[in-house]
Simulated assay, not measured.
Amino acid sequence: MSRSVFVTGGNRGIGLAIARAFQASGDKVAITCRSGEAPEGMLAVRCDVTDQAAVDKAFEEVEAQHGPVEVLVANAGITRDQLLMRMSEEDFLSVLDANLGGAFRVAKRASRGMLRKRAGRIITISSAVALRGEAGQSNYAASKAGLIGFTRSLARELGSRGITCNVVAPGLTDTAMAAALASERQAAMIEQIPLRRLGQPEEIAAAVHFLASDAAAYVTGAVLPVDGGAAMGH
């Protein structure tokens, strides 16, 4: 059966690959984006995940066209990298609000319909950085590590209602974010990955798609690293 799938930050990179994977399996896919056009066949809604009113409005649009959200992928996030001694409080808190606070807002809103239906899938996108740390990314690592505790707590709260909650933790992936790194920096990071290459967005999407499938109905509270071995699990 075609499900109502909502992917935040689904207009590019990993989020877009996730959205396309669900679309390919026949699901009704909605994504959030702050600019640009929607990929063909998808519903795009404007949404700032740091704004609860915007989140509520986005869900209302998705529900009106696709029905209650049955699969939520909380993927939207930002980076503001800087060494601790140079990092402003604004840069620290803004990353936490977008990456962790954003997941809280969309998961809370999505859970309404899931609780009524007594079924659902919530998947948050963390990072290998949450598991191993990275210099200059203390804000990002804190936000992504927070997602693990947040999602596992949801798994305990919502499991009795048939709702699974899991985490996918990508490593360095071939996206615009990786392309923006200096070539020397990228090469040094790849050298630390046992498989010695970047991940592909489609590989992350495959893990997310699995966790949302019937085959993963008995998987909840899990952290699935897709990082070429960079963080060696958690």
Rank of each mutant, 00 (worst) to 15 (best):
R3K: 07
N11K: 01
G13C: 03
I14T: 00
A17R: 03
I18T: 03
A21E: 07
L43Y: 01
A44K: 05
D48P: 07
D48Q: 10
D51L: 10
K57H: 09
V62E: 02
G67W: 01
V71A: 08
A74G: 14
G77T: 06
L84E: 02
S88C: 13
D91H: 14
L96P: 11
D97A: 15
N99G: 12
F104P: 10
M114N: 13
L115S: 11
L115V: 14
R121T: 12
I122Y: 05
S126N: 07
Y140F: 03
G149F: 09
F150W: 15
S153K: 09
L154N: 12
E157A: 15
S160F: 00
R161C: 15
G162W: 01
G162S: 12
C165E: 07
N166K: 07
N166Q: 13
G171W: 01
G171H: 11
R185A: 12
R185G: 02
Q186V: 02
M189F: 03
E191R: 08
P194F: 04
R196V: 02
R197V: 07
I204K: 04
H209T: 11
A212N: 04
A217K: 12
A217H: 08
V219Y: 08
A222E: 05
A230Y: 04
A230R: 14
G233F: 02
